[in-house]
């Protein structure tokens, strides 16, 4: 058999082709697939979201209760000060018992998310393999799973932060009467809600990062496996 072109020539041609036509990681498509996957597994997503919801609701209730306490009984000697992250850190440092509970609840939440995402990856082995056969890059697969969990994290955290803050408000009203509304530092409470949402989102992404990486490393030949 005579070779029409040498191997070097073939590689060179291929790489020229590659420069003119790339493989895309279409964000809109990833977003669509992620949403549809969540919709199909609606109740399981709700359970995952509930885990994040409770952890973040607890975090916000601890934070905003402290804010209410400080507003009602200003304590000059308190080590708790500042707003935002500084407030959170000084509060947790001053109250080791609370810090311990908050940390535990967040750790449990991250583990729960990692577990749920690992299940989701295992269940979709064939789907991921097929996408890789169709030309999906590793980064596309990572994107897919991070979007999916990121959405769950965002919804769960934000809802949890809102409900947690609302409960604190209700309990403040019951305890101190309506007059307390005038002395509460509202901006600080809103900052806590937003901060807790961001923390929830970041922790969710942390929990999902290993499962997403594992999915991206899956060999495409697994798409050929016939057993499900």
């Amino acid at each position: 058999m005579d070779e029409q072109i040498t191997h070097e020539e073939a590689i060179r041609r291929l790489r020229t082709d590659m420069r003119t036509s790339s493989v895309a990681t279409p964000f809109a498509t990833a977003l669509k697939i992620a949403f549809q996957s969540l919709r199909i597994r609606f109740w399981r997503s709700i359970i995952t979201i509930a885990g994040i919801f409770f952890a973040i609701a607890f975090l916000v209730s601890v934070l905003n209760s402290a804010v209410v306490e400080l507003a009602v009984n200003p304590d000059e000697g308190s080590q708790v000060s500042g707003t935002g992250l500084r407030f959170i850190l000084t509060l947790l440092a001053a109250e080791p018992r609370q810090a311990w509970l908050v940390t535990m609840s967040l750790i449990v939440c991250v583990i729960g998310i990692a577990n749920a995402m690992l299940m989701s990856v295992t269940e979709r082995y064939k789907e991921i393999g097929t996408m890789k056969c169709l030309g999906a890059l590793d980064i596309f697969v990572i994107e897919l799973f991070l979007l999916e969990s990121g959405f769950q994290g965002l919804v769960g955290s934000f809802a949890g932060a809102l409900i947690g803050a609302a409960l604190v408000l209700v309990s403040a009203l019951v305890k101190h009467g309506f007059a307390v509304m005038g002395i509460l530092p509202w901006s600080q409470m809103v900052i806590n809600i937003l901060l807790a949402t961001v923390i929830g989102l970041l922790l969710t992404l942390l929990g999902a990062s290993f499962p997403a990486y594992r999915a991206s490393q899956m060999p495409p030949a697994d798409a050929m496996r016939t057993e499900v």
Binding site: L14, R15, D17, M18, S21, S22, V23, I33, Q36, S37, R39, I40, K126, E127, G129, T130, M131, K132, C133, L134, G135, A136, L137, D138, P220, A223, M224, T226, V228
Partner: peptide, 26 residues
């Protein structure tokens, strides 16, 4: 490398599977 293989699978090769392997949500 991994990128070049993805490129090859995307453009040069089409796969048909025993179990069809359509993406169920699409």
């Amino acid at each position: 490398d991994a990128y070049e293989l993805a490129w090859l699978r995307c453009r040069k090769i089409g796969y048909i599977f025993q179990t069809f392997n359509l993406i169920p949500v699409m």
